[in-house]
C-alpha cells in the first residue's frame, strides 16, 4: 500500500528552529555550571586581553598600531571569533558523536548532516567572551579618531558578518578533519585557535611566510586587521594592501568552499565509500 505523503507543515527552517529553541531551553536549566562556565569564558577573554595590555605596558606602538588601534583590532577579531564559537563552536563534539555512534541519529533524519550538526546546539556560555569583545570593540570605536561615514559602517558590518563566517568555516574544517584523526583537535587547534590568535595581531609584524598563510590560506587577517586599517585610514603592509578588506566576503567563500569539500570527504570516509 503506497501511502501518499501528506504535505509538509512549516518550511525548511522549521526543523532547525525547533532544535535550537530546545537547546536554549535546555541550557537555562543548567544554572550553576552555566554560571561557572560563563565566568570561565569571561576570564579567558580577559586573559587574552591582558596579554595585549601587558605588552602595551612596555611599548607604545606595535606593528604600527597604538593601544587604541589595538583595542579596535582585538574587539573585531574576538567578536567575530566568539560569535562563530557561539553559533558553530560545538561542532567540535563531532568526534564524540562518531565514537558513541550518536552521529547515526543525524543520518536517520531528513536534513543534511552538517546542517544538523551546526544547529545542534547554541553555546550560550560564549556570551561572556562576546561581552568582553563588545567592550573592547566599543572602546576601540570611541577612543580612536574615526571619520564616521557610510564607508566605515559598511566596513564594520562586512568585517563582523564575514569575519564570523570565516571563523565558522574554520570550525567546520576542523570538525571535518576529525573523521580522519584520533585526538585530531591537537592539529586543528593550529588553525582555529592559532587563527584566532593571529587575527588579533597586526599582520605587519608577521614575516612574509606568516603573512601569506594567515592572509591567503587561513585568511583570518580579513576578519580584523584589514578592516581596522580601513576604518582608521592606515596603509597596509607589503603584500596586504588595506583595500583587500573589501574582499572579505571572498575570503569567507574560500574558507567555506574548503570546509564543505573537507566535510564531503570526511562523511564519505565515515560511510565507507571510496576508502
Amino acid at each position: 500500500m503506497a501511502r501518499a505523503q501528506p504535505r509538509a507543515a512549516g518550511d525548511w527552517s522549521t526543523p532547525y528552529r525547533a532544535v535550537i529553541g530546545s537547546r536554549i531551553r535546555a541550557q537555562r536549566s543548567y544554572r550553576a555550571s552555566f554560571a561557572l562556565d560563563l565566568f570561565g569564558s569571561l576570564l579567558i577573554g580577559l586573559a587574552e586581553f591582558a596579554e595585549v595590555w601587558v605588552i602595551f605596558h612596555n611599548v607604545r606602538v606595535l606593528g604600527g598600531l597604538d593601544f587604541n588601534a589595538i583595542l579596535l583590532l582585538f574587539g573585531l577579531s574576538n567578536l567575530a571569533f566568539s560569535m562563530a564559537d557561539l553559533l558553530v563552536g560545538h561542532v567540535d563534539n563531532l568526534p564524540t558523536y562518531v565514537r558513541m555512534g550518536t552521529i547515526d541519529a543525524f543520518y536517520l533524519r531528513p536534513q543534511p548532516v552538517l546542517a544538523q550538526l551546526v544547529t545542534s546546539e547554541l553555546s550560550l556560555r560564549r556570551l561572556a567572551r562576546i561581552g568582553v569583545a563588545l567592550v573592547a570593540l566599543s572602546a576601540g570605536l570611541t577612543q580612536n579618531h574615526i571619520a564616521w561615514g557610510p564607508q566605515v559602517v559598511a566596513m564594520l558590518v562586512l568585517a563582523l558578518v564575514f569575519g564570523t563566517a570565516i571563523f565558522a568555516g574554520l570550525f567546520v574544517c576542523a570538525a571535518s578533519l576529525q573523521f580522519f584523526l584520533i585526538n585530531g583537535s591537537e592539529l586543528t587547534n593550529s588553525f582555529t585557535y592559532g587563527g584566532s590568535y593571529a587575527a588579533s595581531q597586526p599582520a605587519s609584524i608577521f614575516p612574509t611566510p606568516l603573512k601569506m598563510i594567515f592572509g591567503y590560506l587561513v585568511p583570518v587577517v580579513f576578519t580584523a586587521y584589514l578592516p581596522t586599517l580601513v576604518i582608521l585610514r592606515l596603509p597596509g603592509p607589503s603584500g596586504l594592501p588595506s583595500w583587500l578588506a573589501w574582499l572579505t566576503p571572498f575570503a569567507a567563500l574560500w574558507v567555506w568552499f574548503v570546509a564543505l569539500r573537507l566535510w564531503r570527504w570526511g562523511t564519505r570516509h565515515y560511510q565507507g565509500g571510496g576508502g
Binding site: 501528506p6 504535505r7 509538509a8 507543515a9 512549516g10 522549521t14 526543523p15 528552529r17 525547533a18 532544535v19 530546545s22 531551553r25 535546555a26 536549566s29 543548567y30 558513541m100 555512534g101 550518536t102 547515526d104 541519529a105 536517520l108 533524519r109 531528513p110 536534513q111
Partner: peptide, 30 residues
C-alpha cells in the same frame, strides 16, 4: 529506525519536547 544501544532522543529535556522536536523535524502538521 531504533538502535537499541543508541538514543535518538534529547537527553536533558522532558520526553514531550523530544516528541515535539521530532514532529518539527519531520514537518508534521500540528
Amino acid at each position: 529506525v531504533v538502535f537499541g544501544q543508541r538514543s535518538q532522543l534529547w537527553w536533558d529535556l522532558p520526553l514531550r519536547e523530544s516528541f515535539s522536536i521530532l514532529a518539527a523535524i519531520h514537518r508534521l502538521d500540528t
